[in-house]
Structures are given as C-alpha cells and as structure tokens.
Design a protein around this nucleic acid. Sequence first.
DNA 1: TAAATATATCGTATATTTGCGATAAACAAT
DNA 2: ATTGTTTATCGCAAATATACGATATATTTA
Lengths: 113, 113
Amino acid sequence: MAYRSTNYKEDEVQLAQFAKALSHPARIAILKLLASMDTCFCGEIVEELPIAQATVSQHLKELKDAGLIQGCIEPPKIRYCIERENWKKAQELFLDFWQQSYLSESKNKSHDH
Amino acid sequence: MAYRSTNYKEDEVQLAQFAKALSHPARIAILKLLASMDTCFCGEIVEELPIAQATVSQHLKELKDAGLIQGCIEPPKIRYCIERENWKKAQELFLDFWQQSYLSESKNKSHDH
DNA sequence: TAAATATATCGTATATTTGCGATAAACAAT
DNA sequence: ATTGTTTATCGCAAATATACGATATATTTA
C-alpha cells in the first residue's frame, strides 16, 4: 500500500484497492478478455497484449493479489478466470459509489443559477 | 502516464485513468464528500481528512486533472464541486465495464462441471 | 536424459506516487 | 502597509509501479 490506510473507512480503502487494480489499461484488457471468454490460458492473454510476457505475468499477479482473478494449473498451461465472489464485491462497491446521492438522478436538478 | 498508452483501446485507457483517480482512499473520500454536499470549500475537505493540507491540495489537483471535480474561486476560499459531465462519462465507463458479459447475470449459469 | 513449452520470478532501470514542511500567492481586514 | 486567512506550489525523501531481459521452475514430449 502506498498510503497510510488507517483513518479511512473500510469501504473507501476497499474501493480504492479495487480501483488501483483497474488503474492500468493492460489490466482492464485482461479482465475484459476473461469476462468475455469465461476462462482463458495465460498464453492467449500474452498474445492479446502489446507488452512482454514478463510484464503480463506481473499484471496477472496484481489482479490475483487484488482477488479479481484466479488461475488453475492445467499442465503445461495455466487457465485463468474471474474470481466471481470478489468480482461481485467490487461491482457492488463501484455501483454504490457511482450511484450515491443526487448525482445519479436521471433528471438533473436545475443547475442554471 | 506511467505506461505506454499506445496499443490499448481508447475506452480502456480512459477507464484506467478514471480508475487511477479513484485509487486512493483520500480521493474516494473527497469525491464522496462532494457528491453528498453538492459543493464544499477546500478547508472543509482538509478538516475531514487525516492528512496535511498540502497533501489534500495535491489530491484535489489530481482529481481536477482527471476532470472529476472543478473549483471556483470565492475569495478568500475555493469552492469545489463535481464536474458533472466527466462524472457521467466515468460512471458510464464503469457501469459498462462491470456489466459486461455473462458475469453480471443475476442467475449464474451452471458452473458445477 | 535431453529438448521444448509455458509461466513465474529476479534483478534492474526509470518513472510516478505519496506525504509533508516550508513558502508563495491572492485577497480581506485592520 | 501590515497582518491574517486560505489555498497552491516547491523541494525533498521514501515507497511503489512499470517494463523487460534473463533465468528459474515445472511439465510434456522426443
């Protein structure tokens, strides 16, 4: 963690952690790929992305650490997929965040003062 | 930008940028405060957060650079508020992301293979 | 056993982030 | 003019993030 997580609310810290996992386009691309294909092999991910294999592996580790994906070994390959439980938790945190308050009302209040 | 943004899709880069803006609990807290209060003065934000004024100011700058907030000068204070247009854009990008594919279906497909 | 395949990890260079004290800048009030 | 108030910026230190080549590990195949 790059920040002092004490003194922030549990939910804020969790949301920030998931946001950090999404804060790189390579990781967004990986998650979209996994979400669209249900599962896929590490090698397919490496082929899709414009970065080296070592770098992809690093991003996969970060997504695993964030809890958003998991990998099962199927020698000689590794099959990755979304970790549904945390995916759902993250989804809920983000939906709550974006839908908070008056900002998500479909009709704007008059703001032409 | 910490990464080579070429070779990624426009939407992925944008989503990653907004995610980066949300990737620190202080910034989450600031946005929640602004969303709940419509507008508030910089000083009120500083009082709410467990970090120094200089650090808050830095986080505010990042949120401004990301387009999520804006500040209007009301001497001697500065009134901050959500930048609604980009807020909506970000909201849409995140909703699309989380709702992609089979993962957001309320009933799971059978996964007991 | 040796070679090939698939993925993770190590080491390293560079860039970015986080945090804060000190200070600057802009303005209001005295 | 000086002082006080509010916020931004500078300068710095420490920690993280990004990227990749080289290498290690594990397993399959020849």
